[in-house]
Amino acid sequence: MKKLLSIVFVFVAYFSFAQNDTLFTKANTAYNNAKYQDAINDYLQINKNGVESAELYFNLGNAYYKINKIAPSIYYYQKALKLDPGNQDIKNNLAFANNMTIDAIDANPDSGLSASANKLIGTFTYNTWGIIAIVFIFGFIALFLLYYFTGHHTKKRIFFATGIIALLLCIISVCFGFHEKSEVKSNRQAIIFQKEVAVKAEPNNHSSEAFTLHEGTKVKITSSLNNWRQIELADGKTGWLTQSTIKEF
Rank of each mutant, 00 (worst) to 15 (best):
Y77K: 08
Q78D: 08
Q78N: 12
Q78F: 00
L81H: 02
K82H: 07
D84K: 13
D84R: 08
D84W: 10
P85L: 05
P85W: 02
G86S: 12
G86E: 12
G86A: 08
N87F: 06
N87V: 10
D89H: 04
I90N: 10
N92S: 14
A95W: 01
A95H: 06
A95V: 03
F96K: 15
A97S: 12
N98K: 15
N98C: 05
N99G: 14
N99L: 10
T101K: 12
I102W: 05
D103I: 10
D106C: 05
A107W: 06
A107C: 13
N108A: 13
P109G: 04
D110I: 03
D110F: 08
S111T: 14
S111D: 15
S111L: 13
G112M: 08
L113M: 14
L113R: 09
A115T: 10
S116K: 07
S116H: 03
S116Q: 08
A117W: 13
A117V: 15
N118Q: 12
K119T: 14
L120W: 04
T123K: 11
F124A: 11
F124P: 11
Y126S: 15
Y126T: 09
Y126E: 14
T128W: 07
T128V: 14
G130M: 08
I132H: 07
I132Q: 09
A133V: 15
V135Q: 06
V135T: 11
F136R: 04
F136P: 02
G139E: 10
F140V: 01
I141E: 04
A142D: 11
A142S: 11
L143A: 05
F144P: 01
F144H: 02
Y147W: 09
Y147L: 00
Y148G: 01
Y148P: 00
F149G: 01
G151T: 04
G151D: 11
H152Q: 11
T154G: 00
T154S: 04
K156V: 03
F159G: 02
F160C: 00
A161Y: 05
A161C: 04
A161M: 05
T162K: 03
G163K: 01
I164V: 15
I164F: 04
A166C: 10
L167A: 11
L168N: 08
L168I: 14
L169E: 11
C170A: 13
C170V: 00
I171C: 09
I172T: 06
V174D: 01
F176T: 00
F176K: 00
G177Q: 03
F178K: 03
E180N: 09
S182I: 04
E183W: 02
V184F: 10
S186A: 14
N187P: 02
N187W: 02
N187Q: 06
R188S: 05
R188L: 07
A190S: 09
A190C: 05
I191V: 14
Q194S: 07
E196C: 03
V197I: 15
A198H: 13
A198F: 13
A198N: 15
V199E: 08
V199L: 08
V199H: 04
K200P: 03
K200S: 08
K200Y: 06
A201R: 12
A201P: 00
A201D: 13
A201H: 03
P203T: 07
P203C: 04
N204T: 04
N205Q: 08
H206N: 15
H206E: 15
H206F: 06
H206L: 09
S207R: 03
S207P: 08
A210Q: 11
L213M: 04
L213G: 01
H214I: 01
E215D: 10
G216A: 03
